[in-house]
Structure formats: structure tokens, C-alpha cells
Simulated scan of single mutants.
Amino acid sequence: MHAVTVSYPRLATFPPGGYDKGRGAHWLAIWFAVQHLFFKKWWFPRRLRPTVLRAFGAEIGTGVVIRHGVRVTWPWKLAIGDDSWIGEDSWIYNVEPIRIGSDVCLSQGAFLCSGSHDHRSSDFRCDNGPITIENGAWIAADALVLRGTVVGEGSVVAARAVVRQDVPAGTVVHIGTVY
């Protein structure tokens, strides 16, 4: 039998930070407190969620509906167009900017993830990229959109589907489809 040499990152060498959070530690702490004590709660008025995000630097259009349980990593790296809906328990992990167009529906549990790591690097360094969801797209329940991608206008990312590259306008990405 031949021994196989496996290479993997050494996590102790991970470079601190890895990306620009865009604000200082004090501001980050205030956002975390507001998000976890009020913003995500079922009892917090839905009509106030866009106002809170705007207060922390997000660009939020009119008629935006943000349901309870929604998690936003850094509001100042978020833009949402008019009349978009963000469903319960969606996670907008925006270590890089995430732009959501108008008339976009992010269904329950959708995950937009602009952060990752380079598994080939010896120190597991960050490998992040922005995400754009164009007008009229629907990201269905529990779908995952990964960093550095654009979901084209009027596209549908079906429930539990994964997007890891750009999706052309008007495309339907079914579960099991490689996109």
C-alpha cells in the first residue's frame, strides 16, 4: 500500500481580520446588540426593520418587507431595492457588499454568503466576493447563493439549490443543477 500525502491548511496561521469590516469595534458591538436584542425578534415591528438598517448605513428602498429572524452581518454593506421581500430566518452574510434589486423575493431560510476561505492556501485565508441579486429574482426557501455571483434579472433559484457562478437572466436553477 502506498501512503498518501494530504495537504491541508494550518488554522493556527490564519491571518487575523481577513477582510475590511467597514466600521470600528464599537460600531460592530452596537449593531450586534441591536440585531440580537431587537431586530431579529418576532415581536419587533416589521415596519421598523428597514429603518433600523438605514440607521446603520444600509441603502433600503421603499416597500421593503423584512420578516423576523433575518440576520444581516454588516448593514453598511447592504443595498435593497424597492418592494423586495426578505423571508423569515434568511441570512445575509455580507462580509463583502450584497446588492438586492427591486421586486426580489428571498424566501424563508435563504442564505446569501459573500464570504469563504481558500482551502488550498496554507493559512486558510479569506476568499470573499460581492453578490448581486438583480430585479425580479426569486431565491426560494433554503437556497444558497455563494460569493462572487450575480443572479440575473427574473431568475429563480429553487428551494435548496446552490448557486456558485453567475446565473443568466430568466434562468431557473433547480436543486442538483450546477450553477
Rank of each mutant, 00 (worst) to 15 (best):
M1C: 05
H2V: 14
V4I: 12
S7R: 14
P9V: 03
T13C: 05
F14W: 11
P16Q: 15
G17K: 14
H26W: 13
W31C: 10
F32N: 15
H36C: 12
P45W: 06
P45N: 09
R46H: 11
R46C: 14
A55P: 06
T62M: 00
H68R: 10
P75E: 08
W76K: 10
K77D: 01
I80D: 07
I80G: 08
D83N: 14
S84M: 09
W85C: 12
W85T: 13
I86Y: 10
D89H: 15
W91S: 12
Y93V: 04
V95C: 14
E96W: 07
G109F: 00
S114V: 01
S116A: 11
D118H: 05
H119L: 15
S121K: 08
S122W: 08
D123R: 01
C126Q: 13
G129W: 09
E134D: 11
A140V: 03
D142R: 12
D142A: 04
L144W: 00
V145N: 00
G154T: 03
A161N: 00
V162N: 05
V163R: 03
V163H: 04
R164C: 12
D166T: 06
D166S: 10
V167G: 03
P168Q: 05
T171I: 01
I175N: 15
Y179K: 11
Y179V: 06
